[in-house]
Amino acid sequence: MIDATITDKKRNLRDAYSSALIALGRRNPDVVVLDADLALSTKTKRFGTVFPDRFFDMGIAEANMMGVAAGLAACGKIVFASTFAVFATGRSYDAIRQSIAYPELNVKIVATHAGISVGGDGASHQMLEDIALMRALPNMVVIAPADATEMEDVVPAIAEHNGPCYVRIGRADAPILFETHGMFEIGKGYVLREGSDITVIATGTMTAEALKAYDLLKKEKIDARIIHMPTIKPLDEKLVRKAAKETGRIITCEEHTVIGGLGDAVAMAIAKKPVPMIRIGVNDVFGESGEAWQLMEKYGLTAENIVKRAKELIKKS
């Protein structure tokens, strides 16, 4: 079991990204960073300030940025390409498919502002299909870290991995869940709370909600196992199957459409020996403007909704 607690301390994952990038850049001269006119928002600009020679703003031309990233990678660079998730995956999908995933080039797409918690910008900017898009591509690793500590571990881990990676993080500050570094490994899921009545598997921003749900369920005498699944592809199928076998019920939670994301990946993993399952996510609709917390509440991405759905599942099965 991994030590994880929800405290009042919050930190933005974008800040963690930029500090980890700078540390990586100091160690490795092959690290090159690209952005598409959002360097102040994604915080890659900080890398650019420290290493002006290895930072290129490609302007508002995301597909081209992905192709340029591929060309740099083909010449031995470890390329980090950042912009908002909606542009990084939707706008650039074919460039990623043709020039990065198919030739299996060493490009790390780190997308910020993923999910509905983008808030006021509304549906046009709330990317809810990025995991599905990237998961469908052969050779692509897909990661959604839960807090800033983990994000700082993700950056060197993906740099170490020779091949394409997609990392999605949100816009908002997130509670710190992990006090110490060194946990993250590509392809591994983590049991944060032991339990035998039901398993809640969460990724990204939803892991904090799952931990809160654990305490709420405990009060109702429901013993939930909480799994944090930072890597959605390749999925830690062994851990998922073990949880299915031992707890008999699974709920997945993601700030993403229920189509093609973590929920579908988990369902595939237990398809041979299925157990009753509920997928919590955005139910095949576009988002809207609002405060982040209001949207998370309205679209059921809260600890309270996890509790409600867990009770439903236990009642039915």
Binding site: F56, A63, V68, A70, G71, A74, C75, Q98
Partner: peptide
């Protein structure tokens, strides 16, 4: 030197290679 086929992608990649040079 580069996988291609879907039109419109290659020049971006060539820009990346030239930038690396």
């Amino acid at each position: 030197d580069m996988s291609t086929g879907s039109l419109g992608h290659g020049l971006s990649v060539a820009v990346g290679m030239a930038l690396a040079g």
